[in-house]
Design a protein around this nucleic acid. Sequence first.
DNA 1: GTCTATAAGATGATAGAC
DNA 2: GTCTATCATCTTATAGAC
Lengths: 196, 196
Amino acid sequence: MNSTTATAERIMDAAQRMVQTRGYNAFSYADISALVGIRKASIHYYFPSKKDLGKELVARYRAGFRDKLDQMDNKTDDSRRKLKAYAQLYLDALRDEDRMCLCGMLASDIATLPEEVRREVVDFFADNEAWLAKTLDEGRKAGALSFDGSAKSEAQFFLTGLQGAMLVARTYGDETRLRTIAHKLLTKLGIKQQLA
Amino acid sequence: MNSTTATAERIMDAAQRMVQTRGYNAFSYADISALVGIRKASIHYYFPSKKDLGKELVARYRAGFRDKLDQMDNKTDDSRRKLKAYAQLYLDALRDEDRMCLCGMLASDIATLPEEVRREVVDFFADNEAWLAKTLDEGRKAGALSFDGSAKSEAQFFLTGLQGAMLVARTYGDETRLRTIAHKLLTKLGIKQQLA
DNA sequence: GTCTATAAGATGATAGAC
DNA sequence: GTCTATCATCTTATAGAC
């Protein structure tokens, strides 16, 4: 829209990248300043406190993720394609400057987060689990997927499996680890397709 | 042994708890000082730099974990019991002051860790994957376990599944989430037993 | 071994000029 | 909107007395 929003976006882009790669407690306004080319005080004009920045960061990320899930829903009814696309999101993030999922990273920082930020992180996971549960349930009813137990618990299994794989893959600096595990998660559901 | 070692242990105990609950970048020598009841400068006598403390912390944790795995090997040949006991270690940690696995937490901080600490974290995962792969392989050969693909990839799947479940369970403040997923991981291997 | 004192730098944040 | 200047506090770390 206008230039002020553009600056706020650039600040958030820089902050998000650092949270995803370093964590909430390992980036500062000075870091953003250097990346964006703006003084520390100016950042406070847009985000008075780090808490404000953190909250808006997760809210934006959640909304962006929701959009992607909606787009998948609009593009196809094939639950197998949807789950494959979902896993692909994680692979894409890891390949983009070795990023962790924003909320996976904030999950590790959970005990140190301001309450408002923490709430957003929980809601992100709830959003994702709900979408996955719905997709899994539809897929099983359509005979396209196979799994034991509730769709809800299988959704949690799928989500946490990807988060954990991402976490450990980053430690090894080996993205193929995430790919291997994503493939395994899909295979166990009866999905044979390959990920990019 | 002696009192100096005892103090170093108390420092490490306090530091480890804070790394497991808050992360490497969210605890300070001042925090340890308050918990142990010793001055900041005295901590530097035992651990000159934070890097030294971090490295010894992970080395001790690795050794302790190795001991536990050895004890399991000595106690039984039943791979199903071993894997159940392995998963139980994670549940026990989470129930002990809501702790993350030390190395799972450090994995999230990986980009900010001193190289020496990072190496220890990678080795921890390698240790664990090797033990899990061996146990899975023996179990499958004995007909006690069932899974597709290599024992190595299944070991990675099992380990990262537990780490991810722990990460998200902490976010919700709901230990039953880890229990549910651990149960699912075991069930998919053909293990029916319950976790405590 | 443990302390006091102190350093140099980073941190989140504010006041006020332009 | 963006800047300079400044802040109180925290961070890791060292020197030197006891």
